[in-house]
C-alpha cells in the first residue's frame, strides 16, 4: 500500500506538472487545460503546471471587483471533496508528496504532531478564513485586492513556481525583494520541520486540507471499520502518521486516508470502500 501510494503520488505530480517545455524555457503553460483545477495544492505559476490550483482559483475569484460568490471554485471543491475527501491530500497533492519524502530522511527523532497539536490543528481554519477569505476580500491589497494566502504563505508557490521560474528568468530575479525572502523563509521552515514532524503544512496550515476535511465524513471514498472483527490491538492507532484514534480514522477532518491503518490491521477489519 505504501509503495502504491508513492507511485500514485509521483505519477499524479508528473502528470499535473508535465509541461516540460515550461521548465526548459522559464515560461508557464497557457493552454485550455488551465480552465480546470487539479484537486491538490499545485501552483499554477509552476512552469510545468498543466492546470490551475483550486486555492489560487478561489482567490482569483474573490479578488474580482465587487463581491461574487466563487461558484467555479466551490464546484471543484464539492466535486473533489464529495468523491475523495482528504484522500486528495494523502494521494494526489504534490506538496504532500514533498513533505512525505522529507519525512523519510533518517535524521531527527520523528514526531507525529507538534506540541499543542489540539490547538495548532485549527491553524488551517484560521488561514482559510483569515488569509484566503477575509484577506483576499478586504485586507493587504488596499484598493487592489491580493491573493493573500498565495502572496504571504503558500510554500508550494515558492517551491514549484518561484524557484524554477527565477532560475530561468533573469528579469524576474532582478525583482526579488523582502516578500520573496519571507516566503523562502517559510518554505525552509516547513522543509526542515517536515523532516521531524509528519506533514506539518497539511496538519496546521493548509486551507485546502481544511476544506476537504469537511467532506471526510461523507465522501464516496472512505475507510470502513468492521467493529465485529476488531480485536482492539491498537496497531492502526500506532501506524496512523497523524496520531488519530480508531474512532477518528476516516471520519476525522485530520485523516488524510494514507491507508497506513488499513495496511497494518492484522485482522483486516479496516479497508477502503467506495460508496455505501
Amino acid at each position: 500500500m505504501r509503495r502504491l501510494r508513492l507511485i500514485v503520488q509521483i505519477v499524479f505530480t508528473v502528470l499535473t506538472n508535465g509541461y516540460a517545455y515550461g521548465f526548459a524555457s522559464g515560461r508557464i503553460y497557457q493552454g485550455k487545460l488551465k480552465y480546470a483545477c487539479v484537486p491538490g495544492l499545485n501552483c499554477y505559476s509552476c512552469p510545468g503546471a498543466a492546470a490551475s490550483c483550486p486555492m489560487g482559483a478561489l482567490q482569483a475569484l474573490l479578488n474580482q471587483k465587487g463581491f461574487h460568490i466563487p461558484f467555479a471554485a466551490l464546484g471543484f471543491f464539492f466535486l473533489f471533496g464529495s468523491l475523495l475527501g482528504r484522500f486528495v491530500c494523502g494521494w494526489l497533492c504534490p506538496f504532500g508528496l514533498v513533505q512525505d519524502l522529507l519525512h523519510r530522511i533518517p535524521v531527527f527523532r520523528k514526531r507525529k504532531n507538534l506540541p499543542l497539536h489540539r490547538i495548532l490543528k485549527y491553524g488551517k481554519y484560521v488561514v482559510l478564513f483569515g488569509l484566503v477569505g477575509v484577506g483576499s476580500l478586504f485586507l493587504f491589497g488596499g484598493f487592489a485586492k491580493a491573493p493573500a494566502f498565495c502572496k504571504y504563505l503558500c510554500p508550494s508557490g515558492t517551491l514549484f513556481g518561484a524557484i524554477p521560474l527565477l532560475g530561468k528568468n533573469e528579469a524576474l530575479r532582478g525583482q526579488i525583494g523582502w516578500l520573496f525572502l519571507w516566503k523562502l523563509g517559510i518554505l525552509l521552515f516547513i522543509v526542515i520541520l517536515s523532516v521531524k514532524v509528519y506533514r506539518p503544512f497539511c496538519q496546521y496550515l493548509c486551507p485546502l486540507g481544511a476544506i476537504y476535511g469537511w467532506f471526510n465524513r461523507f465522501s464516496l471514498v472512505r475507510i470502513q471499520w468492521e467493529e465485529e472483527t476488531c480485536i482492539s490491538c491498537g496497531a492502526c492507532e500506532k501506524a496512523c502518521p497523524v496520531g488519530l484514534s480508531l474512532q477518528e480514522i476516516s471520519r476525522s477532518p485530520e485523516c488524510i486516508r494514507c491507508g497506513r491503518c488499513v495496511e497494518n490491521c492484522p485482522k483486516k477489519c479496516l479497508r477502503f470502500i467506495v460508496g455505501n
Binding site: 480552465y35 505559476s45 466563487p70 461558484f71 467555479a72 464546484g75 513556481g161 524576474l172 525583494g177 516578500l179
Partner: peptide, 30 residues
C-alpha cells in the same frame, strides 16, 4: 450545479486569465 453557474457567470475565464500569466504574488515578487 456550482460549476454550471460558474460557467454561466464567466468565472472560468477569470481563473484561466490568472493561471496563464505568471502570478507575481505566488512567486513572492508582486
Amino acid at each position: 450545479v456550482f460549476l454550471g453557474i460558474g460557467v454561466a457567470e464567466g468565472q472560468f475565464a477569470v481563473i484561466w486569465r490568472k493561471a496563464t500569466m505568471i502570478c507575481m504574488e505566488c512567486i513572492g515578487i508582486g
